[in-house]
């Protein structure tokens, strides 16, 4: 070609290639509005309450903030919350892994029923969950007379709190792992068996490592819920000071004693837990998305 072809030679083509100006600006406007709405929503319902908690907690200075934690009742509440989580989370971990493994890898009678039962705590109000325990283990309840006879105190004592917490956090691990394990299938386990591994060995060396990130994620959520549960625990607790109050219950008690700074100070502990959970959760999602949620595979 001896001459370059200038754009002016193709005016018609050029005009049809450039998108109409009005479409661009309209899309931009809509997009920014939606983003603004989402940010405003988040700010209002997430950021503002969090900031308020910390602001109120430190309203009277660091001294008052720390004083809230020197109370023996606060110590008892922290201890009880930790004990409850330390029992509930491993229990649900073991149960969840077992149930997910059975459901994902086997067909058996009652499988669908089990899945429904696992989901039950999610559809039941936490207060009702707590009430169920009162109705079963209370003096007037189903097992009441037997428990009284054998001098066992379940509700209005630590075991009741642990049970109620286990109930409401039941589904977390199982629900997270079932789709993951279903998607992973049984092929690797079968391979392990053909190589001479026992079922247990295969479970330990093949199944568990494959679900480790999903498991960590699930344990994280389970723990956050176990430590933060209010409704179910409130019903079965009895609110005995220094004995059966978890952190969330203690926050309510402090509030009811007009001790707002201390109340928010203790609440800030829980808010801090929530933030840490959120951060770890995000990191896990970012790095191990494939290993956490089924269905996100790119082949």
């Amino acid at each position: 070609m001896s001459e370059a072809i200038a754009p002016a030679d193709f005016p018609a083509a050029e005009a049809s290639l450039r998108p109409p100006a009005s479409v661009v600006t309209e899309t931009g406007w809509v997009r920014w509005t939606l983003i603004a709405v989402a940010v405003a929503f988040l700010a209002l319902f997430l950021v503002l309450p969090l900031v308020t908690v910390f602001a109120q907690a430190f309203a009277k200075g660091i001294g008052a903030y720390l004083a809230a934690f020197s109370e023996p009742d606060a110590h008892a509440a922290i201890k009880l919350t930790l004990i409850t989580a330390a029992i509930a989370v491993p229990f649900n971990l073991v149960f969840g892994v077992t149930a997910a493994w059975a459901i994902a890898k086997f067909q058996f009678w009652g499988r669908d029923l089990l899945v429904t039962l696992i989901d039950l705590p999610f559809s039941v109000s936490p207060v009702v969950s707590g009430l169920i325990y009162v109705l079963v283990f209370g003096s007037q309840g189903l097992l009441g007379p037997w428990l009284i006879e054998h001098d066992i105190q379940i509700i209005f004592a630590v075991p009741g709190i642990v049970l109620a917490t286990i109930f409401v956090t039941f589904p977390f691990v199982a629900r997270q792992l079932i789709p993951l394990m279903q998607e992973q299938g049984t092929v690797e386990e079968e391979a392990a068996l053909t190589l001479g591994a026992t079922g247990w060995h295969a479970f330990r060396t093949v199944t568990l490592p494959n679900i480790r990130w999903g498991l960590l994620y699930a344990v994280l959520l389970c723990n956050a819920r176990a430590m933060g549960e209010f409704g179910a625990v409130s019903v079965v607790s009895g609110h005995i000071r220094g004995l059966t109050n978890t952190l969330p219950l203690h926050v309510e008690i402090l509030y009811n004693e007009y001790n707002f700074v201390a109340s928010f100070a203790v609440a800030s502990l829980l808010a801090g837990l929530a933030l840490v959970t959120l951060v770890i959760k995000s990191v896990l999602e970012w790095r191990y998305a494939d290993d956490i949620a089924a269905g996100a595979r790119r082949h």
């Binding site: 029992i87 379940i154 004592a157």
Partner: peptide, 12 residues
Amino acid sequence: AFGASLALAATV
């Protein structure tokens, strides 16, 4: 842990 908590209950 479970045993401990039941024992705890019984000792109340």
